[in-house]
């Protein structure tokens, strides 16, 4: 049984005044990330919602901002979803963590931190989930470019030299040119042929 976002919004407004929000695609867009905890805590405890089950936490990169999307359901009342959205700037994105309310957010927030770089403040163990700690960048951001592992860069050549390994002249020259232009060896994005 789906819930109407308008209705949920007016209920939150009466119970928790001061939360700025609007309805967007039958979901609730919280205008300030700080309000997320209050809104979620209300939905979880209010007797006519009892949103006790956080099904999914995910993020989307909309180029101008990052959005974190939460799908809440109620196991007790068998209703849902109530969808919450929070938007944060791409530079230094910070959202309060829901792990205190829902343990189920633990791994999903780590996944978003790993792949989008969103920092969930208050998460007990915010580490990368899939990639290694020294990995640079966040692959699900739209501006992420994969480095080309086949092409050597100047730093690689220096490493080879330090270890006394010779490298072909053309490869060397290409690496130096890249450095001169201030570029990195970037893998070419495969065409749009996918069928």
């Amino acid at each position: 049984m789906p819930l109407l976002a308008e209705e949920v919004k007016s209920r939150i407004e009466t119970a928790e005044p001061g939360i700025a929000m609007k309805v967007f695609r039958n979901s609730i867009l919280l205008e300030k990330p700080e309000d997320l905890l209050r809104a979620a805590a209300f939905l979880k405890s209010a007797p006519d919602f009892r949103m006790d089950y956080l099904a999914s936490v995910t993020a989307v990169d909309y180029l101008k901002y990052l959005e974190s999307v939460y799908h809440l359901y109620s196991i007790e009342k068998k209703t849902g979803p109530v969808v919450l959205r929070v938007r944060v700037p791409r530079k230094d994105p910070r959202i309060p963590s829901l792990v205190g309310l829902y343990r189920g957010a633990e791994l999903q927030e780590r996944e978003n931190y790993d792949l989008f770089g969103i920092v969930y403040e208050g998460h007990p163990d915010l580490r990368r989930l899939f990639l290694w700690e020294t990995f640079e960048g966040h692959p699900l951001r739209k501006d992420y470019v994969q480095e080309d592992s086949e092409v050597l860069e100047a730093a690689d050549i220096e490493w080879l030299d330090r270890h006394g390994i010779s490298s072909p002249k053309e490869v060397r020259q290409h690496a130096l040119e890249l450095r001169k232009q201030g570029k990195r060896a970037v893998a070419e994005k495969d065409g749009k042929e996918g069928a």
């Binding site: 006790d52 196991i75 829902y102 343990r103 189920g104 957010a105």
Partner: peptide, 8 residues
């Protein structure tokens, strides 16, 4: 309680 809270 834990099963529900941890989204199992």
């Amino acid at each position: 309680a834990l099963a529900v809270n941890a989204s199992l």
